[in-house]
Write a protein that binds this DNA or RNA. Structure first.
Lengths: 348, 348
DNA sequence: CTGAAAGCGCTTACAG
DNA sequence: CTGAAAGCGCTTACAG
């Protein structure tokens, strides 16, 4: 008896159903459902609410997601699609999303290889989970064309794609211009730019805004001074090592990178080459990752509000999932320049 | 008519059900189910298989996960619980898991704040999704006690917890001993160790194995030469900056870090302080992250096979989910020392 | 080989 | 306020 019970307990922990709760509380399963979902207003007596709550607690009942989803026609899963989850920036975005979504939605990260988006097949499989909502980070138009999601959808960091769905974007252009102004005012005249090879729109915006403002302020960045690498310290480092001698001959005194990650590579090789930062070369990036504040020298960077990005996107999606209207269908969050030691001193 | 159809098409893309496929193919839904799940052997005629396949293709039918899960009693979701998803090491583990799990399982990452495990409540909500299986990375015993999962469960990097569930572990001790031997043979006599503050078992193993082998080989690491920080370049850097002067006075010529991330912080501050690597100070870590091969100098590191860890864990779980027996219930993957420039030269 | 039917666990009109 | 019942989309014995 004893060992039998124990065995059963370990092997197949009895799933508690609404019917069992109903039995225990002496009510119908309909009433249990109402109480479990907090839809009691004017529909369940105080008395029954109490009995059901008690039974739920005693039995440890949890509403079964599968049954509930089938009945409602939609699950409690929010699918988040992003091209790169192993990125400190993205980790903060997720933290924001989780906070605004709350515990009632399960966040399912659609993991793909870095820089890739899910294939049409993967998307169909994801959709067959009947997600309550979708969050798509840094997509390209092609992916959105294929998507055709029946679920509420919010885009993150998808400038120029506002026509496809409600979006939360970062005003990277403003930060880029501040950076160009900062360097020009510090006396720099010749600069270079390290871009990303991925065609994500945000990188194009960063580059264009920086180049335009630089040109306007007499900071010279020729087309031959723009290189591209993957978002990866090592690639940026070796690309920089290869081009630096030439740049140096041309009098370059500042290198702007489209991400802090690229900038770390540049800083590393600059140190190896014995280039003094910032006296001989100023270095700056975008993202303002945590490490940029503690690196030595600290890295000047365009701060992009990662957590607020996730927060706002989660909030927007939540409104959509709850059937509420959005105040604004396209939100843009400010960026701002954080000046640190890597650009602190003026060049000659 | 035209615009009405279009409207309907955009607003509510008709969900294609098995019943619709059955109608089209002139068979029962049972037959559709059999074909869609590839369970036709000796149960469906060639003829019907063809008709159903055609109907599926024409209508774009995808088996609904919710309905299917309810009928089967289990979903196609594999939940992966891990204390830190924004970590290059973990990204590789995930890549391995995805590959071995295949496209038929959806990987749901249970995201928590760095270093945290989901609360009991979160776990119950996750379990209400009736996951096909569970993968838990670097857990502590307490979490596993609470878990009591009815789903198949495989542990990753959980040394000492093999009693709870089938496990795939890393033989970090062997790598740690190789590292101690390498340093001792290079002539080092005084070393220091930078540990992690999280109480994860793998870190205790790394430290103990290194210290034991070091002691056996006359490499001196006093208790006052062990410091702990979070897994974070900045924290490691400032901790090292604080203790280095004292260590230097004591003649320390080697610093071993429990992760490469810690080692990057040490390298950074060493450079700032003008300490020559490896001539004045040898630095080494664990993980062998991609950056360690491209950093300058390259970082000597105990290579831990991240992708194979994920691969094996996924394979084991898959067997479990398919009801097959495991050949081995506890698997341990080898680690190995990768020597690079950060320890290449012998100290005095 | 085939299909009618039961059942998975829940939610939601509906009738009372 | 309450409960019986239909229905969500599928899978799986079962009878033929």
């Amino acid at each position: 008896m004893d060992s039998g019970e124990q065995l059963q307990h370990r092997a197949r922990p009895r799933r508690v159903t609404a019917a069992m709760v109903a039995d225990r509380a002496g009510v119908s399963v309909a009433t249990v459902s109402l109480v479990a979902n907090g839809k009691t207003a004017g529909r369940v007596s105080e008395d029954n609410i109490l009995r059901v709550r008690e039974a739920i607690a005693e039995l440890g009942y949890v509403v079964d997601s599968i049954g509930s989803s089938l009945a409602r026609g939609v699950s409690s899963i929010v699918v988040m699609v992003a091209p790169d989850i192993s990125n400190p920036f993205f980790a903060k975005v997720i933290a924001g999303v989780r906070e605004s979504l709350g515990p009632q939605y399960q966040l399912l990260l659609s993991v793909t290889d870095a820089g890739e988006f899910p294939q049409a097949d993967d998307v169909r499989r994801l959709m067959s989970l009947r997600p309550a909502g979708l969050l798509v980070d840094a997509p390209n138009a092609g992916f959105l064309e294929d998507l055709a999601s029946p679920s509420p959808l919010v885009l993150l960091d998808a400038p120029g794609l506002e026509a496809y769905a409600p979006s939360v974007n970062l005003d990277v252009a403003s930060g880029a211009r501040q950076l160009a102004a900062h360097l020009a005012e510090a006396g720099h005249r010749e600069a270079a730019y390290v871009d990303s090879v991925t065609g994500t729109e945000t990188f194009a915006l960063r580059r264009q805004a920086f180049l335009a403002e630089a040109a306007a302020r007499g900071l010279n960045v020729g087309a031959d001074r723009i290189i591209s690498t993957t978002v990866d310290v090592g690639s940026a480092a070796s690309a920089f090592a290869g081009t630096w001698p030439g740049w140096q001959r041309e009098g370059v005194t500042a290198v702007v990178c489209c991400t802090d990650t690229h900038a770390y590579g540049v800083l590393q090789e600059a140190r190896v080459a014995g280039v003094k930062i910032p006296d001989e070369l100023a270095v700056a990036g975008f993202d303002d990752l945590p490490y940029s504040a503690t690196s030595n020298p600290g890295l000047t960077s365009v701060h992009l509000p990662a957590t607020p990005l996730g927060l706002r996107a989660g909030e927007q999606l939540r409104r959509l999932m709850e059937g509420k209207p959005l105040d604004k269908t396209a939100v843009t969050l400010e960026s701002s320049l954080v000046v640190r030691a890597s650009t602190a001193a003026a060049a000659e």
